[in-house]
Write a protein that binds this DNA or RNA. Structure first.
Lengths: 330, 330
DNA sequence: TCCCATATGTCAATCGTGCGTCATAAATTT
DNA sequence: AAATTTATGACGCACGATTGACATATGGGA
């Protein structure tokens, strides 16, 4: 049986009250007693039962972190950063991978409530606004509108779309396609798309959109992309995520389409992983670390003070990382 | 304020005891009352406070999942599978990224104890055996020996080393190098190494080892590998992880070393990610899904019944995925 | 009619800790 | 010597739900 506060008191030869005082550094305490208690705690390997403490109206220091999947490097890196920053502030992360499953997301939301988490960082958004509003807990959303009371953190998706398109144009491409991973209004991808469309219009070029659904198996994506590449004359492709861009590079190679000579490709996300292991890929890098930091900071602000006034939308700058896959070829 | 059991009772017009009985399906209950209570729960959006329930000696249904990092695709995929399987069994995952930091791992362990988790899946092992034994909770270890009472789940690292080496040999390589990500006895990498060394001896070939520390920044790794590739005559490389193998491929390309004509490369791990996005890489695939399943199954067995007899070591089979990077060239 | 299974309510203890109140005693200041 | 400050103990309530004991009521079957 795990030792309790009373066991520590007995071991240290003091009253339970004193032990509690030592733990919470509350009231008058002599160094001598403190030491006695600390030693007893160490000897018994005592850890205050945070369940009991939480029940007493205190915080649980648990934060629900809800994303669709951590096996995607982008979310993996983001979640890792979030977890790190939460840890530094003394909070624990309950990981929730909704796998784009509405039902799972709903069950998770209820679980989190039942577990009395202090707040939620939500990056998986298959549920309606209502369900999130019903939660009644501090929530910060990553990259999607949930409700007017839930602040959003995102990077500048629109500018990303603009820059990506301009980059392809400037490196010589004219027939520029958009490979979008989905097509839902209110989704970040959509603003990247808007950036693309408006820029194409300004450039007086015809827009071409292909939806490469993120739910498809990657082999299916590959097939689909191969099909497109082999039938259409394309000079530049803006993929709304890096992984799709990788498949494009792969398929282009198989078809003997040279990158960047015949085809220029630009991705989106710019994870550390992509930068390290695919330094050839031009991409729009989201500030993963800053986003994680802001998400945590805003959430903890709300957790500490429910009334704290937050903006509705925080947009962080993106950065074009220019590499060989989009370089001008002479 | 979140509704309590008493509020539900009032709303349903029954006693608190009855509500509790309905929730726990305990004692005699009429359908009529059950329905009244369920409706009241729904109306108030009531979630039983699991903190309070846990305090009552019940399980917390929280499991600590301790790995070094989820941004590494291998761990990302493994953790995601684990989280999924835990969820299916009604358990919640507390994610702990120790970042190979001893102190963080220790703090995490204490946090998990304080939070009364029902058990721990440990895949980060920077601490001594003692600290893990002291925990006094069901623990299952991934891939490393912690103590005789803590079962280990791993894949067949030794056989992986053997197969990898044989594959390189059979495809024609004679000067076969090992690029190991670390060199600690008791670590899985070490058995891969043993497999390599023994196979090389059987083949009467000279072994060559290089340590490409996993702690190094990938740019440093790249530099180091470039250096090695450009100074030594190598025909085959067995990398103890796929990411290192990717760097090898990358650097070989830069140096004009053709793969597989001049150099054959084989990696290790075989994540879905690698299979999808680097189908050219031959690799030893660990059964990520089966490992996750077994880890969870064993842990829950221990959680449910402390006394359940488990083996000390569970070794799951690996699989050679043969691709172009190691193919015989004629 | 009596009994028993079914259905619900009342009451109180319990889980481990936090914390306020009161009491007491020693140490320190005035 | 009196008044404070410092240090500790004892006690009890609270947190929200669980659970057992006990009481009571209804209905159906023997």
């Amino acid at each position: 049986m795990r030792p309790k506060l009373n066991d520590v008191a007995r071991e240290a030869g003091v009253s339970p009250t004193t032990v509690s005082r030592v733990i919470n550094n509350h009231g008058y305490l002599s160094e001598k007693t403190k030491n006695k208690v600390f030693q007893a705690m160490k000897k018994l390997n005592y850890q205050p039962n945070s369940i009991a403490r939480s029940l007493h109206g205190k915080q649980t220091n648990l934060i629900g972190v809800l994303f669709s999947s951590v096996s995607n490097p982008f979310f993996g890196e983001l979640v890792e950063k979030i977890e790190n920053k939460l840890f530094k502030s003394g909070y624990k992360t309950i990981l929730c991978n909704s796998a784009d499953n509405k039902e799972k997301e709903r069950v998770y939301l209820n679980m989190l409530i039942a577990n009395q988490v202090d707040g939620i960082i939500a990056g998986a958004h298959n549920l309606g606004i209502k369900e999130y509003e019903k939660v009644g807990l501090p929530i910060i959303s990553f990259d999607r509108y949930l409700s007017s009371t839930i602040p959003i953190v995102s990077s500048d998706n629109y500018l990303g779309g603009v820059l990506a398109t301009q980059e392809l144009y400037q490196s010589g491409a004219r027939k520029i396609y958009l490979f979008a991973s989905s097509h839902t209004p209110n989704s970040p991808t959509d603003k990247r798309r808007t950036g693309y469309l408006e820029t194409m219009e300004k450039l007086q070029l015809e827009a071409h959109e292909k939806v490469i659904a993120s739910t498809m198996a990657s082999s299916v994506k590959a097939l689909m992309i191969k099909q497109i590449l082999s039938t259409e004359q394309i000079e530049g492709i803006f993929c709304t995520d890096d992984l799709t861009a990788l498949i494009v590079l792969q398929q282009a190679k198989e078809l003997g389409i040279r990158v960047p000579q015949d085809l220029k490709v630009i991705g989106y996300d710019g994870t550390q992983f992509i930068q390290n292991y695919h330094p050839e890929l031009t991409t729009i890098a989201q500030p993963i670390n800053d986003m994680a930091e802001l998400l945590v900071e805003l959430l903890l602000k709300r957790v500490t003070d429910e009334q704290s006034e937050l903006k509705e939308h925080y947009v962080l700058p993106i950065k074009l990382i220019r590499n060989q896959s989009s370089s001008q070829f002479m």
